[in-house]
Amino acid sequence: MQIFVKTATGKTITLEVEPSDTIENVKAKIQDKEGIPPDQQRLAFAGKQLEDGRTLSDYNIQKESTLHLALR
């Protein structure tokens, strides 16, 4: 499925993911596309910060959802 990640600079990244993917996997995909190390990424959805060990389906993130990326 496709999801979107909006960066602090307003850029939107499109990612191909599975509901079973962990947040860690998603951060690795962002690193592949943007070169941002996962340990510098903070992802949020619906106002909640997402934890590495959880999956997209844990957070009820569905196709075409938009996550927000902040850098630490």
Results as ranks from 00 to 15, higher is better:
Met1Phe: 14
Met1Asn: 04
Met1Asp: 03
Gln2Met: 10
Gln2Ser: 14
Gln2Gly: 11
Gln2Glu: 13
Ile3Gln: 00
Ile3Gly: 00
Ile3Ser: 00
Ile3Asn: 00
Ile3Ala: 01
Ile3Val: 07
Phe4Trp: 06
Phe4Leu: 06
Val5Ser: 01
Val5Phe: 03
Lys6Ile: 14
Lys6Gly: 04
Lys6Thr: 12
Thr7Ser: 09
Thr7Gln: 06
Ala8Lys: 10
Ala8Met: 09
Thr9Phe: 07
Gly10Val: 05
Gly10Arg: 05
Lys11Phe: 09
Lys11Ser: 10
Lys11His: 14
Thr12Ala: 05
Thr12Pro: 05
Thr12Gly: 04
Ile13Lys: 02
Thr14Val: 15
Leu15Glu: 01
Leu15Ser: 00
Leu15Arg: 00
Leu15Phe: 05
Glu16Met: 13
Glu16Leu: 14
Val17His: 03
Val17Met: 06
Val17Cys: 04
Val17Trp: 03
Val17Ala: 06
Glu18Asn: 10
Glu18Met: 15
Glu18Ile: 10
Glu18Ser: 11
Pro19Thr: 11
Pro19Tyr: 08
Pro19Trp: 07
Ser20Ile: 09
Ser20Glu: 11
Ser20Leu: 07
Ser20Thr: 11
Ser20Asn: 14
Ser20Pro: 06
Asp21Met: 13
Asp21Lys: 02
Thr22Asn: 07
Thr22Phe: 13
Thr22Arg: 13
Ile23Leu: 05
Ile23His: 02
Ile23Cys: 03
Glu24Cys: 05
Asn25Pro: 01
Asn25Phe: 10
Asn25Arg: 11
Val26Met: 04
Val26Trp: 00
Val26Leu: 10
Lys27Gln: 02
Lys27Phe: 02
Ala28Ser: 09
Ala28Asp: 15
Lys29Asn: 07
Lys29Leu: 13
Ile30Ser: 01
Ile30Cys: 02
Ile30Lys: 00
Ile30Gly: 00
Ile30Trp: 01
Gln31Ser: 12
Asp32Asn: 08
Asp32Pro: 02
Asp32Arg: 08
Lys33Thr: 07
Glu34Asp: 06
Glu34His: 06
Glu34Thr: 10
Gly35Arg: 07
Gly35Cys: 04
Gly35Lys: 07
Gly35Asn: 06
Ile36Val: 07
Ile36Cys: 04
Ile36Lys: 02
Ile36Thr: 07
Ile36Glu: 02
Ile36Asn: 03
Ile36Met: 06
Pro37Phe: 07
Pro37Val: 07
Pro38Arg: 12
Pro38Met: 10
Pro38Ser: 12
Asp39Glu: 14
Asp39Ser: 15
Gln40Gly: 06
Gln40Met: 08
Gln40Phe: 09
Gln40Ala: 14
Gln40Asn: 12
Gln41Tyr: 09
Arg42Phe: 10
Arg42Gly: 05
Leu43Ser: 00
Leu43Thr: 01
Leu43Asp: 00
Leu43Val: 03
Ala44Leu: 10
Ala44Thr: 13
Ala44Phe: 15
Ala44Ile: 12
Phe45Gly: 02
Ala46Lys: 14
Ala46Arg: 13
Ala46Gly: 11
Gly47Ser: 06
Lys48Arg: 14
Lys48Gln: 06
Lys48Leu: 12
Lys48Asn: 08
Gln49Asp: 13
Leu50Asp: 00
Leu50His: 00
Leu50Tyr: 01
Leu50Arg: 00
Glu51Cys: 05
Glu51Pro: 03
Glu51Trp: 05
Asp52Gln: 05
Asp52Pro: 07
Asp52Val: 06
Asp52Thr: 07
Gly53Lys: 14
Gly53Ile: 08
Gly53Ala: 12
Arg54Tyr: 14
Arg54Leu: 12
Thr55Ile: 07
Thr55Asn: 06
Thr55Val: 06
Leu56Thr: 02
Leu56Tyr: 01
Ser57Lys: 12
Ser57Phe: 13
Ser57Arg: 09
Asp58Phe: 12
Tyr59Ala: 03
Tyr59Arg: 01
Asn60His: 11
Asn60Ile: 04
Ile61Pro: 01
Ile61Asp: 00
Gln62Thr: 13
Gln62Arg: 14
Gln62Met: 11
Lys63Ser: 15
Glu64Asp: 13
Ser65Leu: 03
Ser65Met: 07
Ser65Tyr: 08
Thr66Asn: 05
Thr66Trp: 07
Leu67Ala: 01
Leu67Glu: 01
His68Leu: 10
His68Thr: 08
His68Val: 07
His68Met: 08
Leu69Arg: 01
Leu69Gly: 02
Ala70Ile: 12
Ala70Tyr: 09
Leu71Arg: 11
Leu71Met: 09
Leu71Asp: 06
Arg72Asn: 09
Arg72Leu: 13
Arg72Thr: 14
Arg72Cys: 05
